[in-house]
Nucleic acid binder design. Sequence first.
DNA 1: TATTGTTCAATACGTTCA
DNA 2: TGAACGTATTGAACAATA
Lengths: 317, 317
Amino acid sequence: MLSYNFNVLTCSSCKAFFRRNALKDGNALKCPFSGNCDLTYLTRKFCQKCRLNKCFALGMKKDLILPERELQLRKERRIRKKLDLKLNKNNDQKSCNSSSDETQDISGSDCDILDQFLFNNTISDEDIEAQVMDIETCLTSTAAKVCESVTPIVSINRPITDYNNNFNAIEGNRLTELLSASNSLKISYGSVVSVADTYIDAMSALCCNVEEMVIKSIEMSKNISLFSELCVNDQISLMKYGSIQVTYLRNITGFDPNTNQLTVPDEDPSQSVLVDLNAIKCTKLYVFEACMTAIILFDPSRPNLQHRKLVKTCTKN
Amino acid sequence: MLSYNFNVLTCSSCKAFFRRNALKDGNALKCPFSGNCDLTYLTRKFCQKCRLNKCFALGMKKDLILPERELQLRKERRIRKKLDLKLNKNNDQKSCNSSSDETQDISGSDCDILDQFLFNNTISDEDIEAQVMDIETCLTSTAAKVCESVTPIVSINRPITDYNNNFNAIEGNRLTELLSASNSLKISYGSVVSVADTYIDAMSALCCNVEEMVIKSIEMSKNISLFSELCVNDQISLMKYGSIQVTYLRNITGFDPNTNQLTVPDEDPSQSVLVDLNAIKCTKLYVFEACMTAIILFDPSRPNLQHRKLVKTCTKN
DNA sequence: TATTGTTCAATACGTTCA
DNA sequence: TGAACGTATTGAACAATA
Ligand SMILES: [Zn+2]
Ligand SMILES: [Zn+2]
C-alpha cells in the first residue's frame, strides 16, 4: 500500500495528489483558513494548500515529477508504437488479400467484421492528437506552402451580407467562416474508375475514406476561429467523436439507395471508387448494419453512465 | 442567497445537501472523527454526518421533503403535460400547413432553423424515461397483447447456425437476437403519396420521422437482452444519444442524392412522404449543412471536456 | 522490481431551470 | 421546492519505463 513516491513513503492518494498539484503556481491553491492547518490521513482533504505544503515539508520533491518534454517524448513513442502495430496489421491483411482475391468467404468469424470496424475506426485521443499536432505544425512552421492552399478557401466565399438576413456583423462573420470551412469538406467526385465489389475491397475503400474524411474534418476545424480558440484537449475531445459523425453526414451525398452503392473519392481527386455495399452487407446478411446499430447504442463513452464498464463488456459479447 | 428551506434560513447548498441526505437511514453517514465536529460555512464539507446533525439541530425538518409518492405524481403530471404540449403542437402545425401552403419565405432568421432543429430533437431524460416506462409496462403488464406483436419478430429469424460460421452457441444467439432486433428497425417504404417541398412541410415531416425512429429504436433495444440487463439509468443515457444516430443510419436508405430527396415513411405504413431537402437546404444556401456540422462538432456533451461551458458558448455564437 | 504516469469510475457539490 | 446539469476532485487499478 505504501511506497516511495517522489522521495517519501506515501499512500497512493498522496502520490496522485502531489503529482497533480506540485507543479501548480504558488497562488493556485489557497488555504481558506489561517494557512497552518494540521492535517492527518483522515483530514487530508480539508485543505489542499496545506496538504501540499505538508508534502513538501516531509521532503517530497517536485523535480522527481517528469518534466513536460519527457512526457511528450514518451507519448510520441507510445503513439509511434501504436501506429506501427496498426501498419503491421494492415500489411498482414493486405498480403493475405493478394493471395486469395475472390474469396467471398473470409476466414475468421463474423466478429472479425466488428473487430476490424472497431479497430479501424477507433481513433484514440493520441491518434487525433498526433493528427492535430501534425496539421498544427503543417499550418504553422511550414506555413508558406500549406497556407497558400488552406487560407484561400476562407476568402473565396463572398461575405453573406448580400442577401437579406437578420444577422449582425459578428453573426454574419461567424456564418461566413462556417460556410467557408464547411465548403472545404465538400466531396468532389471524379469519374468512377473502379468498383469495389468484393468484401475486402469494399471494406478497405471505406476505411480509407473514413480516415481521409477524419483528417479533412480536423483541417476544416482549423478554419473555424472559435474552434481554434478552444484548448487543445477540448479540440481533441470534440474531434474524436465529431469527425466520425461529420464523415457520415458528408458521405450521404454519395449514396445511391437503388443500387446500394456508395461513391467515395479516390486519392486521385479526378477519380472515384464505387463501393458496392452489398458486398459487405449481403455476404453476411445484415450483420454489418446490426453491428453498426449495436456499436452506436452500446457506446461506453456516453456521458452520465453509471456503469461504464458494464456497458463496455456488452460490446465484447 | 439565503432563504427559508425546510423550516430554516439556509444557503442553497445546505438546502440541496439536506434534501440529498436527510432521508438516508441513520447509519448511511458516519463521522470519521468523534461525532461532534464543529462546522461553519467554511468547514461544512469536513463531515457530512455532523453537517446533517447540525441541520436537524437548527430545526430543519425532513417531513418537509416531499414524499416519494408525491414526487411520482408530479413527475407523471409533468410528463403528461409535455406529451399534451407536443400533441397540441403537432395539431397546430398541421392546421397551419393547410392554411398557408406555399410560403417558401418563413419569417424569422436563419437561426430559427437551428433552434427548431435543436428543439425538436432534444429528447430530455424524462421523455426517454417516459418512453421506456411506457414500453416497459406494455411489455410486462399488458404482456399478452403486445408480446404477440413483439416477440414473434425475435423468432422469425432463423437461427444463424445454417451457414458455416465460427460462432459458439452464445455468440450465435447474441447475433441472431441482434439481427432480429435490427430487423424491426427496417424502414418499409409505402407508395409515395405526398411531396413535402415547402420549408414547413419538409421540416415537420423530418421531425415526425425522427421522433418515430427514436421510439422504434427504444422498442428495438428492448429486444436485445443484454441491453435490458443494464440498469435503467444507463439504458436511458445510451438511448438518449444513440437513438438519434441510429435514426441517421437507418434513414440513409431513403435518400436519393440525385434529386436530393429523402423518402420517409408516413404514419400509414402503406404510404410514404417524399421530403425535398432542397426546400430546407437551398432556401438559405448551405446554412443547414454547415450548422449541422457545427452542431456535431461543438457538442458540449462529449466526454472528457475540460471546459464544457466554453464549448457551450461556442454553439451560441 | 520499484517508481513513475495514465485512466476513469465514483462521489459530492452547488447552480440553474422549471 | 425538486430535477437536471455541469464540474471538480479523488484515489485505485493499470500500464510504462528504467
Ligand atoms: Zn490550510
Ligand atoms: Zn463529524
